[in-house]
Amino acid sequence: MAVKRKTEAGAPAFTGAQLLTFDRYRERRDLLGVLLDKDQRYTFSEVDALIDNFMKGKVN
């Protein structure tokens, strides 16, 4: 059974390991493998914000 919890806003939260299996993030699995801690829980909005912040980062 999927391990998830409800946050204050009622949004489900999933572990980083679970998020890597979702079709929603199929194209970003390599990036999420680096950004996410496999045991920490994230909501979809948190993951989307992490991706956006990374993609907007400056290249040195």
Score class of each variant (00 low, 15 high):
Glu8Phe: 08
Gly57Phe: 06
Leu35Ile: 02
Arg26His: 12
Gly16His: 04
Arg5Trp: 08
Glu46Tyr: 00
Arg5Met: 13
Gly57Met: 10
Phe54Ala: 11
Phe22Lys: 06
Gln40Lys: 14
Ala13Thr: 13
Leu31Glu: 12
Asp30Val: 12
Leu20Pro: 03
Lys6Pro: 05
Pro12Phe: 04
Glu8Gly: 13
Phe44Asn: 12
Val34Ile: 12
Asp23Gly: 10
Arg29Asp: 06
Val3His: 06
Met1Tyr: 05
Ala9Phe: 10
Lys58Cys: 05
Lys56Ala: 13
Val3Glu: 12
Arg5Ser: 13
Pro12Met: 06
Asp37Lys: 07
Leu36Met: 04
Thr15Trp: 00
Gln40Phe: 05
Arg41Glu: 14
Glu27Leu: 09
Leu32His: 02
Asp30His: 11
Arg24Cys: 02
Gly10Tyr: 02
Gly10Leu: 00
Arg28Thr: 15
Ala13Glu: 14
Leu32Glu: 00
Leu31Val: 13
Asn53Gly: 05
Asn53His: 04
Pro12Arg: 04
Asp23His: 08
Asn60Ser: 09
Asp37Tyr: 06
Tyr25Val: 00
Ala17Gly: 11
Asp52Phe: 06
Leu32Pro: 00
Tyr25Ala: 01
Asp23Glu: 14
Asp39Lys: 14
Tyr42Lys: 00
Val34Cys: 07
Thr15Cys: 04
Leu35Cys: 02
Gln40Gly: 03
Gly57Glu: 14
Gln18His: 10
Phe44Thr: 13
Asn53Ile: 03
Val34Leu: 13
Asp39Trp: 07
Val47Gln: 00
Leu19Lys: 03
Arg29Ile: 09
Arg28Cys: 13
Leu35Asp: 06
Leu19Met: 12
Asp52Met: 07
Gln18Lys: 06
Ala11Tyr: 08
Leu20Val: 05
Leu32Ala: 05
Thr15Ala: 08
Phe22Asp: 14
Met55Phe: 02
Phe22Asn: 03
Thr43Met: 03
Arg29Trp: 01
Asp39Met: 10
Lys58Gly: 11
